[in-house]
Simulated scan of single mutants.
Amino acid sequence: MTLLDGLHRWTGGLIGLLLVVIGLSGLMLVHKDAWLRATLPHAADVQMQDTGRIGSAMTAIFSDPRATSVTLASRTLGVHRVTYGDRDHGAYVDQTGQTVTRWDSKWARPEVWLFDLHHYLLVGDTGKTVTGIAGLAGLGFVITGVILWWRTRRSFEWRLWPRAWNRFGILRHHRDLGVLAAPLLIVTFATGVMMTLKPVEIAVLSLLSSKADMAAAVRVPALQGGAYVSSTIDWPGMLRIAQQRFPGAEFRVVNAPSKPGGLIAVRVRQVGEPTPNGRTFLWFDPANGALVGVRNSLALPAGARVAAYEYPIHSGKIGGWIWSGAVTLSGLALVVLGGFGLYSFWLNRLLPRKPGRKRT
């Protein structure tokens, strides 16, 4: 038990700050749409799903050859978000296609750099891997913390703040709060790990479906489209085709070809899909708007369908205000646990040592 206690303390003391950063940024991102509705013109507009209106907006947006992707207005955000080239360049556009605001650096928009911080630690794919490893460590903290708490369970107290602001009071509060938050933290860490560490996700989902079946089901069509997006392409007509193929589905994302010969991808959300942007795709030839491929998310293998729940559970995008509130509490708990844990750990080591006092 002494070894487990030392492992829990030292690991937390070394990477606790990283978990605080991840928890705080994630907590803020849960409420991103609400903040944008309060601060951005047209962000509170009612979502419109008319094919003519969306098609007209796509015509205006993709007249700029730098536009690569459009996330369409949703039930919680009344503007389209356009990406130009990479994640650092973008714009918010109202539902008629008029630009509301544009940025050429992620630092120009707080929600953009917060997303980059939470998912990539501002350093790209390497940061994504680090956050996944931190999530694994977080799972370890929760499990070892519950084991260590068990021997002191009779002194458990329901307290928001420590009874005493000394090392013993903070440590006791840390253990009790950790047990209370353990179920939420396990869900948060587990879903985050599965989204960021593909080997872990595949290992878990392969219990439901084979790796080969899941890879084949989500493979993009190997067809060659036109060399570029035609300036005369009939965007409303393409969207009507998508609507006929999946009646009642919500238009969510439109992606231009990422390279010459690629395809236009229209992403829709069918009734019953948990992912906010859906995982149902229709691919079109950018030269003439002809439909060349379809992926029905509801017909995917069981493992791939379960994977669709990772993001909405992790981000609070499912279950209404009840689950978004639970994810908010999870983020708050992670910040408090990490902050107080760091304070307690380093306070014990940085303060002048009194005679007879042992460091733990």
Score class of each variant (00 low, 15 high):
D234Q: 04
V292I: 00
P312G: 00
M48T: 15
A190M: 08
L347N: 12
G12P: 10
H89R: 15
A302L: 15
N348R: 13
N166E: 12
R53D: 00
G320A: 15
Q224Y: 01
G325C: 06
T96E: 11
N348T: 14
G237E: 06
V327S: 05
R163L: 10
Y84Q: 03
V193A: 02
G261D: 00
G248Q: 10
S56Q: 12
V254P: 03
G262W: 01
S25N: 04
L337E: 00
T152C: 11
I264Y: 02
E273L: 00
G13S: 12
A307M: 06
L7A: 13
W35V: 14
T144R: 07
S330P: 05
Q47A: 11
P221D: 10
S206I: 00
A242Q: 01
G78M: 01
P110E: 07
R37D: 00
V112K: 05
P183N: 10
R359V: 14
T2N: 13
I318L: 11
S330Y: 04
K358F: 03
H80Y: 09
A215G: 10
L77K: 09
T360N: 10
Q98W: 01
V93F: 07
L337R: 00
G278T: 06
G237M: 14
G338P: 05
F340E: 07
S315T: 12
T152R: 15
A137C: 12
R172E: 15
P110Q: 07
G320Y: 15
G52A: 14
V204Q: 09
A212P: 04
T129E: 01
L177M: 13
K317W: 08
D116V: 03
V187F: 08
